[in-house]
Structure formats: C-alpha cells, structure tokens
Amino acid sequence: MSRRPELLIPIVFEAGNTSLRKVANWRSNRPVIERRLCTNCLICWIYCPEPAIYMDNAGNVQIDYDHCKGCGICAEECPRKAIKMVMENV
C-alpha cells in the first residue's frame, strides 16, 4: 500500500485495500476442501460473506486462508459436502 507519512489528513489511497488486512485470527475452525468430492460448482463462493473463496488458474476452487473468518457457511451449504470444518491448531 502506498502511504505518504507526511499527510495528516485521512486519505485512502487504494480502492478495496481491506484485502491487505489479515482476518485469519478471527477463525477457530478452518474449512478444508476434499478434492475428491469437489466439482468446482462455486456454490461456496456465492454464499461466502468475504469472499474468501476463489478459483485458481487451473479452475479449481481454493480457500483464501488469510481472509477466511471460519463462519462455516461453505461447509453447511456445499451440495456434495466436500468442505469440512477442522479445528485450528494454535
């Protein structure tokens, strides 16, 4: 993020820069995709409040663990039950 320290007035320099914040420490359970069952239907993505789910270059659905807050909607709504919530190891 480009921030000029000499400016004292509050200015946001980039659009959508909350993506620089890491909210992973909000989470107590992490969603894990079971590749064998996942069909990349993107249902988890449309129901994710963040969105912390994206498609990689190969077209596979991935979870962005920096921004996932661990709400569990994806695991609840996955039509093939391919997402499991696993307790975080701290």
């Binding site: 959508g16 820069n17 909350t18 993506s19 620089l20 914040r21 890491k22 909210v23 909000w26 989470r27 129901y47 994710c48 409040p49 963040e50 969105p51 912390a52 962005d64 920096d66 921004h67 807050k69 661990g70 709400c71 569990g72 909607i73």
Partner: peptide, 16 residues
C-alpha cells in the same frame, strides 16, 4: 465489488 478483509462478523448475511 467488495474486497475481502472487511470487518463484518462471521457469517454476516448483509455482506452476502
């Protein structure tokens, strides 16, 4: 249109 990393509660319906 919305970036991740905002401070909505876990499972917020409004953000969806």
């Amino acid at each position: 249109g919305l970036s991740p990393g905002h401070s909505a509660c876990q499972g917020c319906g409004a953000t969806i």
